[in-house]
Design a protein around this nucleic acid. Structure first.
Lengths: 214, 214
DNA sequence: TCACGGTTGTGAACGCTGTACACAACCTCA
DNA sequence: TGAGGTTGTGTACAGCGTTCACAACCGTGA
């Protein structure tokens, strides 16, 4: 975290040490405050105590830096989802447990979007397709990306006999769509400014809808 | 459309005539091609054949121009939804007709996002809360904004006895979330690059989920 | 008819951004 | 000790949003 604090960005060595990491961390802080547009290459180098062009030794261009920040944000999202999942008790009958786990996944997703709107928007800013969704750089502590965590929860639903096997394929897209859409509307769209109680309420109803409609 | 075509941006009068409209149209074209980030004030003035600073006679800053483009994009979205709604036959029993109308609303939404991704993203770029969602500038030919069109379809569902009255409040947020989320994932997110057939398929399943889960 | 005042477009300027390139400091390894 | 690759520096350029003094224009009342 060289140069992240106050004071002049002093460095004892000419080499920085781990500039790449420092830039990603600075970029992540910027994203936290203002979303993907706030990830400004020059500001990141300033915070790392380094000349603007130094960034080009580690990233092809601004988009590449944003891509790294995006991966970091997805990893943070995965951690949030894992955290909510860990709260689900391991006892009870398998069916209700599997349902609770899917709800936890959704709750973690929505909670993260609500708590860290800038990071959440950054997590979906850089271009990615389904291949990138499995990249380890986007995984949480359990080694799974947000997408994979959701898929696992749905698999659990099938194993517990709650979700018919023939409806399993593609189900992650449906569940993800619902949660993602609500998250966007809550932080960016016409639902911004809902108070936390209303937000939690509509979140619950949305998860009800998914559970019943899958 | 002064200066929109090729050739030097000549003007016979000193006054432009309708610079505000010309700037919004140029901005909308830019958004169509590259989303909200592509709405570059200087480029819009260039296309209108006017000096950059002239824009500030009609818009406080770039965000204000983007806001106008956003309203235009929402109006276009409303027109697309109305178009799909107009295809629903007026005969048949009220319940299935009401259901068909809700599906048409969703289909129109998804179709527009798929056909005009840049415009769609622009439509939700500028800050707006629920009050703005009723602004006439964002309405289609029927005078309703996208949000109001959806609300009307849900009201129809209640009148036809398909949706219990007590579940009506807030239902627009659930339906909108699902459609909006899928749209985002399809044009910007991990589902980008799905071929049209798969996209149509997942769209249908999503609307099934909404219909069953509301 | 004409001067006046408000509206609208011009031109030059400022600071910011992303990016390129030659150069210098540094580390590693022979 | 010296060669060569890696990493950070300094300077430069074009493009962006924005400001401001000025000029062209138009409608109005004397």
């Amino acid at each position: 975290m060289t140069g992240t604090g106050t004071g002049p960005p002093k460095r004892d060595t000419y080499r920085h040490g781990d500039l790449r990491r420092a830039l990603v961390e600075a970029g992540t802080d910027l994203a936290r405050g203002g979303g993907p547009d706030a990830v400004v290459l020059r500001e990141a180098t300033r915070r790392a105590g380094v000349a603007p062009s130094a960034a080009y030794r580690h990233f092809a261009d601004r988009r590449a830096l944003l891509g790294a920040v995006c991966s970091a944000a997805q990893a943070a999202l995965a951690v949030a989802m894992e955290g909510e999942l860990a709260k689900v008790p391991n006892r009870g009958d398998p069916a209700t447990r599997a349902r609770a786990r899917l709800r936890a996944v959704g709750t973690g997703y929505l909670r993260f979007a609500w708590a860290e709107p800038g990071l959440f928007r950054a997590a979906f800013s850089a271009s990615e397709d389904l291949r990138d969704a499995a990249s380890p750089a986007r995984a949480g502590e359990g080694g799974l990306t947000p997408f994979q965590i959701l898929a696992a929860a749905l698999d659990g639903l099938v194993e517990a006999g709650v979700l018919p096997r023939e409806r399993r394929p593609g189900a992650e897209f449906l569940a993800w769509s619902a949660a993602h859409g609500l998250a966007m509307l809550l932080i960016d769209g016409p639902l911004r400014g809902l108070d936390p109680v209303q937000a939690r309420d509509v979140g619950r109803r949305l998860l009800d809808m998914v559970e019943q409609g899958l």
